Computed example of a mutant assay.
Amino acid sequence: MFDNLPSAMPHIQAGNLKAFAVTSAVRSSALPDVPTVAEAGNLPGFEASSWFGLLAPTGTPTEVVNRLQQETAKALNLPAVKERLVAQGAIPSGNTPAEFARLIDAETTKWAAVVKASGARVD
Results as ranks from 00 to 15, higher is better:
residue 121 R to Y: 01
residue 95 N to L: 08
residue 49 S to M: 06
residue 16 N to Y: 00
residue 15 G to V: 09
residue 1 M to C: 09
residue 53 G to I: 00
residue 91 I to L: 13
residue 82 K to I: 00
residue 41 G to P: 02
residue 25 A to P: 03
residue 85 L to N: 08
residue 77 N to A: 10
residue 4 N to K: 10
residue 112 A to R: 09
residue 72 T to F: 14
residue 51 W to F: 09
residue 62 T to F: 05
residue 43 L to G: 00
residue 12 I to P: 03
residue 56 A to Y: 06
residue 89 G to P: 03
residue 94 G to W: 00
residue 96 T to V: 04
residue 40 A to I: 02
residue 54 L to H: 07
residue 65 V to Y: 00
residue 41 G to H: 02
residue 79 P to T: 05
residue 109 T to R: 09
residue 67 R to A: 10
residue 43 L to W: 12
residue 117 A to W: 00
residue 4 N to M: 13
residue 21 A to G: 06
residue 57 P to V: 11
residue 76 L to E: 01
residue 56 A to G: 04
residue 30 A to S: 11
residue 37 V to R: 04
residue 29 S to L: 03
residue 33 D to L: 12
residue 83 E to Q: 13
residue 50 S to E: 10
residue 115 V to H: 03
residue 100 F to I: 07
residue 3 D to A: 11
residue 118 S to F: 10
residue 88 Q to I: 00
residue 44 P to I: 06
residue 29 S to I: 02
residue 24 S to R: 06
residue 77 N to L: 05
residue 12 I to W: 02
residue 114 V to T: 04
residue 22 V to I: 12
residue 123 D to S: 12
residue 40 A to G: 10
residue 74 K to I: 11
residue 66 N to G: 05
residue 19 A to N: 08
residue 58 T to E: 15
residue 93 S to Y: 11
residue 93 S to K: 15
residue 47 E to R: 10
residue 73 A to S: 13
residue 102 R to C: 00
residue 24 S to T: 15
residue 87 A to M: 06
residue 46 F to A: 07
residue 33 D to V: 04
residue 19 A to D: 09
residue 33 D to F: 07
residue 14 A to T: 03
residue 9 M to R: 03
residue 80 A to D: 06
residue 22 V to W: 01
residue 99 E to Y: 06
residue 38 A to E: 10
residue 25 A to K: 13
residue 89 G to Q: 08
residue 78 L to N: 12
residue 95 N to R: 12
residue 15 G to E: 11
residue 89 G to V: 09
residue 45 G to C: 10
residue 13 Q to N: 14
residue 15 G to F: 00
residue 68 L to I: 12
residue 122 V to I: 14
residue 42 N to R: 14
residue 56 A to H: 02
residue 35 P to C: 08
residue 111 W to Y: 15
residue 110 K to S: 04
residue 51 W to I: 06
residue 52 F to A: 12
residue 38 A to C: 07
residue 106 A to P: 04
residue 105 D to T: 15
residue 85 L to P: 08
residue 47 E to I: 05
residue 83 E to N: 12
residue 56 A to K: 05
residue 48 A to K: 07
residue 15 G to A: 10
residue 15 G to W: 02
residue 91 I to N: 14
residue 120 A to E: 03
residue 33 D to S: 14
residue 37 V to E: 06
residue 28 S to V: 08
residue 91 I to V: 15
residue 97 P to V: 01
residue 109 T to I: 11
residue 110 K to P: 02
residue 103 L to Y: 03
residue 10 P to T: 10
residue 6 P to F: 07
residue 36 T to K: 03
residue 42 N to M: 09
residue 60 T to G: 01
residue 91 I to M: 09
residue 27 R to C: 02
residue 108 T to M: 09
residue 110 K to D: 05
residue 94 G to D: 04
